Computed example of a mutant assay.
Amino acid sequence: MRMRRWVSGVCGAVVVAAGAAGPAGAVAAPEADLVFHGSAVMKGDQMEVRLTPGNNGPSAVEDASVLLRWSVPLAGVQRLPGGCARTDERTVVCETGALAVDGAGQQIKVAVRLGKHPAEVTLEVAASWNGGVVDRDRTNDQLKVLVLGTGDAYAF
Protein backbone atom coordinates (compact mmCIF):
# COMPACT_ATOMS: atom_id res chain seq x y z
CA MET A 1 0.00 0.00 0.00
CA ARG A 2 2.78 2.45 0.84
CA MET A 3 4.49 1.66 -2.47
CA ARG A 4 1.37 2.52 -4.48
CA ARG A 5 1.00 5.93 -2.83
CA TRP A 6 4.63 6.79 -3.54
CA VAL A 7 4.36 5.74 -7.21
CA SER A 8 1.14 7.67 -7.75
CA GLY A 9 2.67 10.68 -5.97
CA VAL A 10 5.70 10.62 -8.27
CA CYS A 11 3.53 10.24 -11.37
CA GLY A 12 1.37 13.16 -10.23
CA ALA A 13 4.49 15.33 -9.77
CA VAL A 14 5.68 14.52 -13.28
CA VAL A 15 2.28 15.50 -14.74
CA VAL A 16 2.27 18.76 -12.79
CA ALA A 17 5.85 19.56 -13.86
CA ALA A 18 5.06 18.87 -17.52
CA GLY A 19 1.99 21.11 -17.35
CA ALA A 20 4.02 23.92 -15.81
CA ALA A 21 6.43 23.97 -18.76
CA GLY A 22 3.93 25.69 -21.01
CA PRO A 23 0.23 26.16 -21.69
CA ALA A 24 -1.72 23.13 -22.76
CA GLY A 25 -1.84 22.82 -26.53
CA ALA A 26 1.08 25.21 -27.08
CA VAL A 27 2.76 24.62 -30.42
CA ALA A 28 6.52 25.00 -30.80
CA ALA A 29 7.74 27.41 -33.47
CA PRO A 30 8.37 25.71 -36.82
CA GLU A 31 11.99 24.98 -37.74
CA ALA A 32 13.75 25.79 -41.00
CA ASP A 33 17.37 26.01 -42.08
CA LEU A 34 17.95 29.13 -44.19
CA VAL A 35 20.97 29.13 -46.47
CA PHE A 36 22.52 31.71 -48.81
CA HIS A 37 24.75 30.98 -51.81
CA GLY A 38 26.06 33.46 -54.31
CA SER A 39 28.93 35.56 -55.54
CA ALA A 40 30.33 39.06 -55.22
CA VAL A 41 32.42 41.04 -57.74
CA MET A 42 34.13 44.38 -57.14
CA LYS A 43 35.76 46.62 -59.72
CA GLY A 44 36.67 50.18 -58.81
CA ASP A 45 33.89 51.61 -56.70
CA GLN A 46 31.26 49.21 -58.14
CA MET A 47 30.22 45.98 -56.43
CA GLU A 48 27.64 43.45 -57.53
CA VAL A 49 26.24 40.77 -55.25
CA ARG A 50 24.15 37.91 -56.57
CA LEU A 51 22.68 35.53 -54.06
CA THR A 52 20.13 32.78 -53.96
CA PRO A 53 18.34 32.09 -50.70
CA GLY A 54 17.35 28.55 -49.86
CA ASN A 55 15.64 26.51 -47.18
CA ASN A 56 16.85 23.08 -46.08
CA GLY A 57 13.66 22.59 -44.04
CA PRO A 58 11.94 20.92 -42.34
CA SER A 59 9.31 23.71 -42.53
CA ALA A 60 8.53 26.19 -45.28
CA VAL A 61 9.18 29.90 -44.70
CA GLU A 62 6.49 32.38 -45.76
CA ASP A 63 8.98 35.23 -46.14
CA ALA A 64 12.41 36.20 -44.85
CA SER A 65 15.01 38.88 -45.41
CA VAL A 66 18.76 38.91 -45.95
CA LEU A 67 21.15 41.56 -44.68
CA LEU A 68 24.11 42.69 -46.78
CA ARG A 69 26.71 44.76 -44.92
CA TRP A 70 29.90 46.16 -46.43
CA SER A 71 33.04 46.97 -44.43
CA VAL A 72 33.16 50.40 -46.10
CA PRO A 73 30.41 53.00 -46.46
CA LEU A 74 28.30 52.97 -49.60
CA ALA A 75 28.04 56.06 -51.81
CA GLY A 76 25.26 58.45 -50.89
CA VAL A 77 22.80 57.61 -53.67
CA GLN A 78 22.02 54.00 -54.62
CA ARG A 79 19.64 52.41 -57.13
CA LEU A 80 18.47 49.30 -55.31
CA PRO A 81 16.18 46.61 -56.71
CA GLY A 82 12.58 46.29 -55.54
CA GLY A 83 12.31 44.54 -52.20
CA CYS A 84 15.61 46.02 -50.98
CA ALA A 85 16.15 49.00 -48.68
CA ARG A 86 19.18 50.73 -47.30
CA THR A 87 19.16 50.72 -43.49
CA ASP A 88 22.36 52.67 -42.77
CA GLU A 89 25.54 53.86 -44.50
CA ARG A 90 26.89 50.30 -44.98
CA THR A 91 23.80 48.03 -44.91
CA VAL A 92 21.08 46.92 -47.31
CA VAL A 93 18.27 44.50 -46.42
CA CYS A 94 16.38 42.54 -49.11
CA GLU A 95 13.32 40.35 -48.85
CA THR A 96 13.68 36.76 -50.06
CA GLY A 97 10.04 35.90 -50.65
CA ALA A 98 8.61 32.50 -49.74
CA LEU A 99 11.09 29.62 -49.38
CA ALA A 100 9.77 26.09 -49.86
CA VAL A 101 11.34 23.13 -48.08
CA ASP A 102 14.45 21.91 -49.95
CA GLY A 103 13.96 24.68 -52.46
CA ALA A 104 15.80 27.72 -53.71
CA GLY A 105 14.23 31.17 -53.81
CA GLN A 106 14.54 33.78 -56.52
CA GLN A 107 18.03 35.13 -57.16
CA ILE A 108 18.63 38.55 -55.63
CA LYS A 109 20.97 40.88 -57.53
CA VAL A 110 22.21 43.99 -55.73
CA ALA A 111 24.63 46.40 -57.42
CA VAL A 112 26.02 49.20 -55.28
CA ARG A 113 28.51 52.03 -55.54
CA LEU A 114 31.04 52.16 -52.74
CA GLY A 115 31.93 55.46 -51.10
CA LYS A 116 35.57 55.05 -52.14
CA HIS A 117 37.79 52.76 -54.27
CA PRO A 118 39.05 50.20 -51.75
CA ALA A 119 41.47 47.41 -52.67
CA GLU A 120 39.30 44.96 -50.72
CA VAL A 121 35.95 44.83 -48.95
CA THR A 122 34.48 42.38 -46.47
CA LEU A 123 30.86 41.58 -47.27
CA GLU A 124 28.68 40.19 -44.50
CA VAL A 125 25.63 38.16 -45.57
CA ALA A 126 23.16 37.15 -42.86
CA ALA A 127 19.54 36.26 -42.29
CA SER A 128 17.94 39.46 -41.02
CA TRP A 129 14.44 38.13 -40.41
CA ASN A 130 13.44 34.49 -40.77
CA GLY A 131 9.68 34.66 -40.89
CA GLY A 132 9.25 33.45 -37.31
CA VAL A 133 10.90 30.05 -37.76
CA VAL A 134 13.64 28.66 -35.55
CA ASP A 135 16.97 28.14 -37.36
CA ARG A 136 19.31 26.01 -35.25
CA ASP A 137 22.10 25.94 -37.88
CA ARG A 138 23.37 29.50 -38.31
CA THR A 139 26.61 28.41 -40.05
CA ASN A 140 25.08 28.65 -43.53
CA ASP A 141 23.13 31.89 -43.19
CA GLN A 142 25.77 34.08 -41.50
CA LEU A 143 28.73 34.51 -43.85
CA LYS A 144 31.66 36.88 -44.33
CA VAL A 145 33.30 37.13 -47.73
CA LEU A 146 36.54 38.95 -48.54
CA VAL A 147 36.20 40.51 -51.99
CA LEU A 148 39.26 41.93 -53.74
CA GLY A 149 38.93 44.75 -56.28
CA THR A 150 40.17 42.58 -59.15
CA GLY A 151 36.92 42.12 -61.04
CA ASP A 152 36.98 38.41 -60.12
CA ALA A 153 33.87 36.71 -58.71
CA TYR A 154 34.16 35.44 -55.13
CA ALA A 155 31.69 32.67 -54.33
CA PHE A 156 30.00 32.00 -51.02
Rank of each mutant, 00 (worst) to 15 (best):
S8Q: 13
A127L: 14
V66D: 00
L123R: 11
A13H: 02
G25D: 08
L74A: 08
A20K: 08
K116H: 06
D63K: 07
A18C: 15
A28M: 13
A104H: 12
A104I: 02
R113F: 03
V27E: 11
Q78E: 07
V14C: 15
G83I: 09
V10T: 13
R86E: 08
R86V: 09
M42I: 07
L146R: 14
V49K: 06
R50Q: 10
Q107C: 00
L114P: 00
V49F: 09
S39K: 12
Y154A: 10
G151C: 04
P73W: 05
S65L: 03
G12Y: 02
D33V: 10
G149P: 10
E48Q: 14
V35D: 00
R138V: 11
E124Q: 03
Q142C: 06
Q46K: 13
V101G: 01
L123E: 06
C94T: 07
V15I: 15
V27I: 03
G103Y: 01
P81S: 08
C84V: 02
Y154T: 15
G76P: 07
R50P: 08
R4M: 05
A29S: 13
P58K: 03
T52E: 06
V72Y: 00
A98L: 10
Q107M: 11
V101M: 03
W6M: 12
S59H: 03
G22Q: 11
A75P: 00
V133I: 10
L80Y: 02
R5P: 03
D63I: 13
E89S: 13
G9R: 12
A60M: 06
H37N: 15
N55I: 01
V145T: 13
Y154F: 14
R79V: 04
V66W: 01
L34M: 14
G57A: 13
A29P: 07
A126W: 06
G9C: 15
L51V: 11
A98V: 00
D88V: 05
G9D: 14
E62S: 14
F156L: 09
N140V: 15
A153I: 00
C94K: 02
V15E: 02
G151T: 05
W70L: 10
D152S: 03
L68E: 00
E95I: 02
N56V: 09
V72D: 13
M3R: 15
G103V: 08
V49N: 08
G105S: 03
V10F: 11
M1N: 06
M47H: 00
R79S: 12
